[in-house]
Amino acid sequence: MRGRRHLLELAALSAPEIEHLLDLADSFGGITQRAIKKVPTLRGRTVVNLFLEASTRTRTSFELAAKRLSADTLSISGGSSSVVKGETLLDTARNLAAYQPDIIVLRHRHAGAPHLLAANIDASIVNAGDGAHEHPTQGLLDLLTIRQHKRRIDGLKVAIIGDIAHSRVARSAIVGLSRLGAQVVVCGPPTMLPPGIEALGCTATLCRDEAVADADVVMMLRIQKERLSEELFPSDREYARRYGLDSATLRKAKPDCLVMHPGPINRGVELEPAVADGPQSIILDQVTNGLSVRMAVLYHCAGGGEA
C-alpha cells in the first residue's frame, strides 16, 4: 500500500539490497558504544510489536532497537491479544492500524501472515518470523556476524545442520548466504530435509561429516520439539550422535571455522556444551548484532512511506 517498505522475506531482496542493510547495521552497531545509546531518528513514530507466538529474544531485540531509535513502541504478545478470543489476525491488525503505526513487526506461527498484513494494512510490515517460512532479521544478523568475522561472505562454505524442514531460520540463512555468493550445504535426517530445498540455493546431504568437511561456518539449528507434531527422529541420543556437533566433528572443518546457533540451545542435543562455549562459537555476537540489524531494518522501513 502506498509504496510502503516492508521486510517480508530475504527471498525478495537482491544482493545489493542485502548488502545495503548489512552496511546500515554496521553503522548502527556504533551507537551501542556511546554514552547515550539512543538517536532521535524515529522520534514521533510508532512501532507496534505484534508477537502472536512466544518469543523473548526477538521481541526484546526489536523493542530495544525501536527505543534506541526513539520510536514509540507498543508491544502486544500472544497471551494479551484478542487473537486468543477468536478475533482474526486481520481484525487485530486493523484495530492497531487505527492508531496509525508506521511499522508493525509481526511474529506469527503461520507462514505468509506478514504478506496478508502487507496487502491489507497501511503500515510497513516487518516479518519477525512467520511459521516455517522466513525470519529475515535473523538471516541478516547471521550474515552480519559472519561478515564481521570473515570479512566476506562470497566463497565461504557454510553448513546448516538440523531440522531444515521446520526452520524459518534456515530458509532465511540459505537465501541470504547463497545470494551473497556462499556455498551452502544443508544437512539433517531425511525426515527433516524438505523436498526441493536445493531450489533455495544450496546442496543437501544426509552425512554430517560431509557437510562439516572444510566448512568456514557451521550453523546448528535448534530442534524444536514443541513444534514437531510427528515422529521425525527416534531419540535425542540418536540425533545427538548422528547430527549433533561435537569437538571431534568440528575438527573436520577449517581450523578457524565459526560455530553459530540461533538459540536457545538444547545443550547436549544439537551442540556439545564444549563447542557451544568454545572459542569458535560466535553465538553471543549473534545476539549483539541482532540489535543493530533490527535498528537498520526499522530505519530502512520507516523511510519508505514518504516517497
Partner: peptide, 19 residues
C-alpha cells in the same frame, strides 16, 4: 496429508507451508 495445505515440493518448501 497430515496437516498439509498445498502440494509438497520446492514451492511449499520455499514458502514454509506444510505439503
Amino acid at each position: 496429508v497430515h496437516g498439509g495445505v498445498m502440494h509438497e515440493g520446492s514451492v511449499s518448501t520455499r514458502l514454509g507451508l506444510a505439503g
